[in-house]
Computed example of a mutant assay.
Amino acid sequence: MPLHVPPAPAPALRSVLTALSSPTVVREARTPSLLAAQGPATPELPLPVHVLDRISADGTPVTRLAGWRFLIRCGDHAVAAAETMLTPDGWAFSHFFEGPYVASTERALRQAETVPQPFQPRLLSVPGLYMLTLWLHGDCAADAATGHPAAADVLVPLAPAPPGIAAHLPVRVAELLPVLTHRVTPSPLLGSPA
Rank of each mutant, 00 (worst) to 15 (best):
M1L: 01
P9G: 06
P11T: 05
P11Y: 11
A12S: 15
A19T: 10
L20D: 11
S22V: 02
R27T: 09
P32D: 13
L34E: 09
A36L: 11
A36R: 15
Q38L: 11
A41I: 12
P43F: 06
E44Q: 13
E44Y: 02
P46C: 10
P48T: 06
V51R: 14
D53L: 13
A57R: 15
D58G: 11
D58N: 14
V62D: 14
A66T: 05
W68G: 03
W68E: 02
L71M: 13
D76F: 11
V79R: 09
A81W: 10
A81L: 12
A82F: 06
E83Y: 11
D89R: 13
W91S: 00
S94L: 08
H95Q: 14
H95A: 11
A108Y: 04
A108S: 08
R110P: 00
P116N: 05
P116C: 04
Q117V: 12
P118V: 06
P118N: 09
Q120M: 14
P121T: 07
L123A: 06
L124M: 10
S125C: 03
G128V: 02
L132R: 04
W135E: 04
W135T: 01
H137K: 02
H137I: 03
G138R: 09
D143E: 13
G147E: 04
P149N: 09
A150I: 02
P163C: 10
G164C: 09
I165H: 04
E175V: 01
L177N: 08
P178G: 02
P178W: 08
L180T: 05
T181Q: 15
H182I: 06
H182R: 15
P188W: 11
